[in-house]
């Protein structure tokens, strides 16, 4: 039996919204420690790794490990019916073929209950081991989203060049070019506005703008995003949850 109660429905809403355009369905792996997902988009260019640790929940129990195959579009529709501030409880029996979803209004005496049919998903799993990191950038997630949107008007690719004291985002397209430079900044009054760059080796990588557009749908999950880059390797884009994370691994582009 799985039972997890979110203090606010908005958290699961944001998680599902951040994932549903990359992958249509995925397995939620539930253990006593929490819920995790690994899902790859159809082109196998973008991988999503989600961990919702037990401490994220107001209440959590999972007696036996269970895997719940979920259609994210369907889950999004049902979750959309609840108010952001509602308690949201998900539950499933062992060997269940449906996920029970309950919203409790915190003010009104109102309880809404839904069942989502579960799917049998035979998905590719990729072996993501620990990765070396040459450069790490942490910046406000809204700033990163704006950079990706602004650069996308120019090109299908976004080049990220990291040196000791700056990160350069560059797009070269048919209509022209764009450059945005960010530098480390410590904002004591507004720590969420701080920018940090740590570097072992300079980085010059290009990524598909289309995939970055999917990644920045996670912006509302966290005020900050951490980008880990390594030469000739997938980039890691991490949005922290209150306890856990939503991570995207994006394969870089290469010169023909």
């Amino acid at each position: 039996m799985l039972e997890g109660k979110f203090e606010e429905a908005s958290l699961l809403k944001k998680i599902v919204e951040a994932m549903k355009d990359c992958v249509s369905s995925c397995n939620f792996n539930c253990t006593e420690n929490g819920i995790s997902v690994q899902a790859v988009d159809n082109s196998r260019v973008l991988l999503i790794s989600l961990l919702i640790e037990k401490d994220t929940f107001e209440e959590y129990r999972c007696d036996r490990n269970i895997t719940l195959g979920v259609g994210l579009g369907s889950l999004s529709k049902i979750i959309g019916n609840g108010a952001n501030s509602d308690y949201l409880t998900i539950s499933a029996d062992d060997d269940a073929d449906k996920l029970n979803i309950i919203f409790e209004d915190k003010v009104k005496d109102k309880i809404s209950e839904y069942n989502l049919k579960l799917l049998d998903i035979d998905a590719d799993l990729l072996d993501v081991g620990p990765m070396d990191t040459d450069a790490t950038i942490t910046l406000p997630s809204a700033d990163f989203a704006k950079i990706c949107k602004d650069m996308k008007v120019l090109s299908e690719s976004l080049q990220i060049i990291v040196t000791k004291d700056s990160a350069l985002f560059q797009s070269v397209g048919d209509i022209g070019t764009g450059n945005i430079v960010i530098r480390p900044k410590t904002d004591i009054d507004h720590p969420e506005e701080s920018v940090t760059i740590s570097l072992d080796k300079p980085i010059d990588l290009s990524f598909g703008s289309k995939y970055l557009s999917d990644i920045i749908k996670a912006t509302s999950l966290s005020q900050k995003v951490t980008i880990k880059l390594t030469d000739q390797s997938p980039g890691v884009f991490e949005y922290k949850l209150p306890s856990g994370y939503l991570r995207f691994y994006l394969a870089p582009k290469f010169d023909e």
Partner: peptide, 14 residues
Amino acid sequence: GEQQWSLLPFFGLL
């Protein structure tokens, strides 16, 4: 031009 790599050369299928 640039081509998009897949994740498979890096991670491989389990």
